[in-house]
């Protein structure tokens, strides 16, 4: 390696700089996802099925028509249920929260 290259390699390092940044970014996403998964109450799936049974008494919807999302921040937990009614004559989209 020539003398000039030694100086130059310092500048090219600036461009290489990044694999650690990439690792950190990937981890932040992964860990956030893992934690969200872990913090989901275990009853969510059962809840979804039970709601489906109730809704089906009145409207014929399938399991995919019910979306249950769960979010948590420091102060509160938000459980959001979104039921999409089938597209019949007098169809409407019904949101329940």
């Amino acid at each position: 390696m020539g003398l000039l290259d030694r100086f130059r390699s310092n500048t090219s390092n600036q461009q290489v700089r990044g694999s650690a940044v990439v690792a950190k970014e990937r981890l932040q996403i992964l860990v956030a996802h893992d934690r969200a998964e872990r913090n989901r109450p275990p009853y969510l799936n059962q809840l979804k099925e039970d709601i489906l049974i109730v809704v089906r008494k009145y409207v014929n919807v399938d399991l995919n028509a019910i979306q249950v999302t769960y979010e948590q921040d420091e102060r509160r937990e938000i459980l959001e249920l979104n039921i999409t009614f089938p597209d019949t004559s007098h169809s409407h989209n019904h949101d329940a929260k």
Partner: peptide
């Protein structure tokens, strides 16, 4: 390696 940018730093790991 941390200084070169190809290893996560103490702060990076702690932040996570």
């Amino acid at each position: 390696r941390v200084q070169r940018g190809d290893m996560m730093s103490v702060d990076d790991v702690q932040e996570i």
